[in-house]
Simulated assay, not measured.
Amino acid sequence: MPARDQRTTITQVANAAGVSIQTVSNVIRGRGRVGEATRERVAKVISELNYVPHPGASSMRSNRTGQLAHPMPPQSFEPTNNINVEFIRGLVAAAATHDYHVVLTRSDGDPEEIAELCRSGRIDGFVFTGMQPDDPRMETAHRLGMPFACFGRTAPDLPQTWVDIHNADGTDEATTLLIETGHRTIAFLGHESPYFWDAERRDGYLQAMARAGLKSRVALCGSTDKDIEAAARKLLGRGRPSAIVCSSDRLAVALYAEAGRRGIEVGKDLALTGFDDWIVGRNLSPALTTVSTDLHDIAGRVVDRFLTELDGPTGAPGEFVPVELLRRGSA
């Protein structure tokens, strides 16, 4: 039993009972679908560990608004950002199962925008996406005592209230597939950006190539259609590789178009892999081999994590969700 001067955390209760943090939270709040045997086991552990929810939780609960803010960075509004659209769909659906409404706001990353929302009394917390190095949004929310959860990792000195994917694992597996099917000249086409996931996807390709003792070839481009088309023309010009690993399906789609203009047959003359599982990629001929992320599942996990933080900081670590390589005709 913890010493009397040490507060038992909800994470310790969950570990001792062999359940998730969300299940413990549901038992405490008397909501959610929890089996009777599980409910009794959790209640017994709560009693044995003398667990007491965060001191302010009860008073905060009575003042909750049922509103969850999702500040959207400018790139989220781009028509090509299919990932954000799918994540929002999952976020709204997951929040609704807990009687929460999602408030979408545009944010340029100004910490004062976040501070104003914290002070407004109109929201119970945040869901953040599009994290950048030294992102001030989470630091501001944390400093003002506002709960948050993220799709993407937070800085080490902030609460690790995030859910994310292993980006490098996805491109490593895609590159390994190409190597195992006989390709030796494999290039990588990625986005030139400050976001950690773009760097990780490049790293996954590089580690697979190094492991196989093959020479790597990395091409990076900007985010405009013009930039992407120029990169595709260059890669498919003189000395083109036999296969290309792309850090997004959008890049792979551009390579399909350029290959068609040059009479190069994808799946036969050129192997391609993507990342994200756009619906467009599924409908290409041949269909695009890609790394898939279950955005609805991730959104649900992010909402669950937010809800557990409402009862006070849990101190629990972030959570990685596995990716899946979908093998189709392009590779």
Rank of each mutant, 00 (worst) to 15 (best):
D269R: 13
M1D: 07
S216N: 11
Y51W: 14
V323F: 00
G300F: 01
Y256A: 10
N82S: 12
G152D: 11
G222T: 06
R238Y: 00
E324D: 15
A14D: 04
A149C: 09
H142R: 11
Y51I: 13
A252F: 03
T97A: 12
K234A: 15
K215L: 11
E319Q: 15
G263Y: 12
G170N: 07
A243R: 10
I21V: 15
W278V: 00
F306L: 10
I228L: 07
P73K: 09
L270M: 15
C118D: 03
G267A: 07
A271S: 15
H183R: 13
S59R: 12
E324Q: 15
I114M: 06
A208F: 09
E86Q: 15
E229K: 12
V127C: 14
A174S: 14
I244S: 06
R240W: 06
R122A: 13
T224L: 05
R282M: 01
T289I: 02
H70K: 02
T185G: 05
R184K: 15
N63D: 00
E112H: 12
T176V: 05
G318R: 03
S292T: 09
E139W: 00
L144E: 14
A257M: 10
D277K: 02
A199R: 12
Q160F: 02
S193L: 11
G30I: 04
P313I: 02
L284M: 15
L206D: 00
F275N: 10
V27C: 07
A271L: 00
I298D: 01
R240L: 01
S247P: 11
R143V: 00
S242A: 10
D108G: 11
S25T: 08
V321G: 03
E40N: 11
L236I: 09
P156Y: 05
G204M: 04
L68F: 09
G145Q: 10
T154I: 01
V92E: 12
Y205R: 05
L144T: 08
D276A: 08
T9N: 08
T290Y: 04
G274D: 08
D5Y: 13
P159S: 13
Q12C: 02
D203Y: 11
E78D: 14
G66V: 12
A95R: 02
D269A: 12
A243I: 08
G18W: 11
